[in-house]
């Protein structure tokens, strides 16, 4: 599992990357009440704001960490946003993205590096 500076995690699953948000992010956001995910089939570019999440405090955007095509989204977190607070690294993944080369993940932080980064 690798981590972005925007507090997302990425994990390789075949030729896809699974993307979610970190425990640190879910804790900072507070209780989530709303999640809006991209559509399956969307071609996205790194930095595109493709997810909207709202907590009891405020709305935030989540950006695509890499270029690719959205091939699957997690309806469970749309139906039950609090899952993101309960299991951010597991059941509450956000979307799966098809990338040209999964080695793109090597450019992101390791768990230890992220731990230092997030403090």
């Amino acid at each position: 599992m690798k981590f972005t500076e925007e507090h997302e995690w990425l994990e390789i699953e075949g030729d896809l990357l699974v993307v979610g948000i970190t425990e640190h992010a879910s804790h900072q956001l507070g209780d989530l009440v709303f999640v809006e995910l991209p559509d399956v089939g969307d071609e996205v570019e790194k930095g595109d704001e493709i997810v909207v999440i709202e907590s009891v405090k405020a709305a935030s955007d989540i950006c695509a960490p890499v270029d690719g095509e959205i091939v699957e989204v997690n309806q469970d977190i749309v139906d039950n946003p609090s899952l993101v607070n309960e299991d951010p690294l597991g059941a509450a993944w956000f979307f799966k993205i098809k990338v040209e080369d999964t080695s793109v993940i090597d450019g992101f932080m390791s768990a230890d590096e992220y731990k230092d980064y997030a403090g």
Partner: peptide
């Protein structure tokens, strides 16, 4: 603004 229980609970 909140305690460890969290706003929702």
């Amino acid at each position: 603004v909140q305690y460890p229980l969290g706003v929702m609970k």
